[in-house]
């Protein structure tokens, strides 16, 4: 057999095995990605509780959503969460990353300790903080009364409840962002600092004119990840407050879950999911544009 024929044969074999390799995923994609996407779109125009036949209602789900105060409440709660969570998280994570980004003993130990809440299940963190936040004898209020502060109604006041959840989420996730900032910090070329030194820029100036702009991609990533996290908030309000007090911690996910599994409104739940997802993607894109524009 000529060499050429052998080569052709081997490419053909290569192609066929390519199909075999991706076939399982293509089937998976059709069943668990494409079908749900199409079906979610179909559900938007139907009223359905799974048991009785589907009923076509046109745009009623969408018009109901636009006049649903609970939907707007969930939206508002999500933004309250993001408004506190994102800045707090960036400041805390960057602070610790800067501290860790120097020759320091026990660096690995500290990093691992900060990372502990990330690895632990959200359920654990939530149950733990439920006890820390307890009004009468929670750890935080006991500490506060010891040093002469008044008790704070962490989870039982509609003004405090969402910020409390935002603080808890920061505590849980900050470890991952510390590591991301550390990677970002170590990717900044040394000579930028040397040039800044030569130009007489001091520590703070270097931070604002070298470090921070160079960390821009990391900040974009962190803002996007925590926005997605904020829109996906579920177990925290589910365990801590059940969405209360006075709907102040009702998150998008929890509202979808309740609509689907307490009221059996599958069509409306799918509509909510669709709208929340679209808003989330818009927010992420907008944030990205703003942050990247600021850097230049």
């Amino acid at each position: 057999m000529s060499q050429r024929g052998g080569f052709l044969k081997s490419t053909r074999r290569k192609e066929r095995s390519g199909y075999w390799f991706v076939l399982p995923y293509v089937m998976f994609f059709l069943l668990f990605v494409a079908y749900p996407l199409v079906f979610s779109f179909v559900l938007i125009f139907h009223r359905w509780n799974i048991i009785t036949p589907m009923e076509w209602i046109g745009l009623k789900n969408l018009s109901h959503l636009l006049s649903d105060p609970q939907f707007f409440r969930a939206m508002r709660n999500t933004f309250v969460f993001l408004f506190i969570h994102i800045p707090l998280e960036i400041v805390v994570a960057l602070g610790f990353a800067l501290l860790l980004n120097s020759k320091i003993s026990f660096r690995g130990v500290f990093r691992a300790l900060y990372f502990l809440p990330v690895v632990v299940s959200g359920v654990v963190v939530t149950i733990l903080w439920q006890n820390l936040y307890s009004y009468d004898n929670g750890v935080l209020n006991t500490l506060f009364t010891r040093i002469g502060f008044p008790r704070i109604p962490w989870l039982i006041d509609s003004v405090f409840a969402m910020p409390s959840i935002a603080i808890m989420a920061t505590w849980k996730n900050v470890g991952i962002y510390i590591v991301l900032f550390l990677v970002g910090l170590q990717n900044i070329p040394r000579d930028l600092y040397e040039a800044a030194d030569l130009d007489g820029a001091t520590g703070t100036k270097q931070f604002f004119h070298v470090t921070l702009p160079m960390l821009n991609p990391t900040i974009v990533l962190i803002v996007a990840l925590s926005t997605i996290g904020g829109f996906s908030l579920f177990i925290e309000p589910y365990v801590l407050t059940g969405g209360g007090p006075m709907q102040s911690t009702m998150s998008g996910m929890l509202y979808i879950y309740n609509q689907a599994f307490y009221f059996g409104h599958m069509g409306y739940a799918a509509t909510l999911g669709f709208v929340f997802a679209v808003i989330m993607l818009l927010v992420v894109v907008l944030q990205r544009k703003t942050i990247e524009a600021e850097a230049t």
Binding site: F29, L31, F32, V33, Y35, P36, L37, F39, S40, L43, I50, I228, F231, S232, G252, M253, I256, A260, M266, A269, A270, L272, G273, F274, F276, A277, M280, L281
Partner: peptide, 18 residues
């Protein structure tokens, strides 16, 4: 696929399981 949020697919996926 990586950009599709779970919010969109969770209800249809649940129905698929049913």
């Amino acid at each position: 696929t990586m950009m599709i949020p779970f919010q969109i697919t969770m209800i249809p996926q649940y129905i698929l399981m049913v």
